[in-house]
C-alpha cells in the first residue's frame, strides 16, 4: 500500500527538482552562465585549442571552472614553448568607477598568473598589466558585451 502522505512528499520533491532545473537553465541564457561569458565570439587562440582569455563575474576575480580549464591548457602549451614570455592583461567592464576597475583588472590578471604558476610556469615569464575599463572588446552597453569585457587575456610578450 502506498501511503498518500509519502506520495505527496515524493511529488513535492519531483516538482521542486523540475523548478530547480528550470531556474538553472534560465540563468544560462545564451552565452552566459550567471553573468560570466561562456561563448567563444571574442576569443583568439595562442595555438590550436589554446584560448587566449578567460572571463569573470561582475566585481569578481575568482577563476571559474571553465577559466581554470583554459589556463591549464595555456600552461601545458607554455611549458612546451619555454622561450616565450607573456603579458597577462586584466580588464573590467564599463559599469564600475575607473580607479576601482584598474585595481580589479590587476587582481584578475594576477588570478590568472597565479594559476599558471601553480601549473609550473615561472613567474618571471609572466608580466601583468591592468587596463581597467579602458580597452573593451565589445563596445555595446548590454550585459553580454559587459561579460565579454570582464576578462584576462594572455598575450605573447616577446
Amino acid at each position: 500500500m502506498i501511503n498518500t502522505a509519502n506520495l505527496k512528499r515524493i511529488l513535492i520533491v519531483v516538482f521542486a527538482s523540475i523548478a530547480l532545473t528550470a531556474c538553472a537553465s534560465s540563468k544560462k541564457s545564451g552565452k552566459m552562465q550567471g553573468d560570466v561569458y561562456t561563448g567563444t565570439d571574442t576569443i583568439e587562440y595562442l595555438a590550436t585549442g589554446v584560448a587566449d582569455r578567460v572571463f569573470f563575474a561582475s566585481n569578481k576575480s575568482i577563476l571559474t571552472t571553465a577559466a581554470r580549464d583554459t589556463l591549464r591548457k595555456q600552461a601545458a602549451w607554455m611549458r612546451k614553448k619555454s622561450k616565450l614570455t607573456f603579458a597577462i592583461e586584466g580588464h573590467a567592464d564599463e559599469r564600475g568607477t575607473r580607479e576601482y576597475n584598474l585595481a580589479l583588472g590587476e587582481r584578475r590578471a594576477n588570478a590568472a598568473k597565479d594559476y599558471l604558476m601553480t601549473y609550473g610556469i615561472a613567474g618571471n615569464r609572466l608580466s601583468v598589466i591592468s587596463y581597467g575599463k579602458e580597452r573593451p572588446v565589445n563596445s555595446g552597453s548590454t550585459p553580454l558585451a559587459w561579460s565579454q569585457n570582464r576578462r584576462s587575456v594572455t598575450v605573447k610578450a616577446n
Binding site: 576575480s61 580607479e99 587582481r107 594576477n110 597565479d114
Partner: peptide, 26 residues
Amino acid sequence: PGMTFAPRFSPDGEKIIMSFAQNGNS
C-alpha cells in the same frame, strides 16, 4: 615595481597619495 594609480595631492601640496597594485592587491 608595478602599477601606481589614483593619485591626488595632499592639501599642502607636499605629498602625493595614490594606490600601488602588486600581486593582485592594491
